[in-house]
Amino acid sequence: MRPFEVLDVSGDAGLRVFGRDLAMLFANAAAGLYDLVTDVSRIRTLRSVELEAEAGTLEGLLVSWLNELIFRIDAHGFIAKEITIRELRVPVLPADDPSGFRIEASLTGEEFDASRHEQRLLVKAATWHRLKIVQENGTCQADIIFDT
């Protein structure tokens, strides 16, 4: 199974992400995002960061998670090569709890350096535009569009 593929959208960049389970889906979405920004094979594993995000829906969690990563890219230049999802909590009964869905992850990578790393897209944000997560037959798939 390919981890992700790039979607063709007018003016922006989209990803179709695959995973055996939600944890893998979220990890592959992160890998896809980094691939839009630079050639990750040239990123070294020098620094680790711990991240968490929460939201009231699964779709909301994916947007929050990716926006958390975009914040780290944009504010600190941090690009991860290795992504480990430590926890992905999905409430049994999705209630009206704005923090019911939660992700915790460890990421290892380094700071982007324009003199050594390829510059691809400047990603501004992960959007709700055409956002879709499908879970069936033991696989997960998500479409996500980024403002670039």
Partner: peptide, 17 residues
Amino acid sequence: SKAYERGRSQQGTLGAG
């Protein structure tokens, strides 16, 4: 605080796209 952090070193930059 995230917006402050993103804005700290991007004043006077053109961006991309």
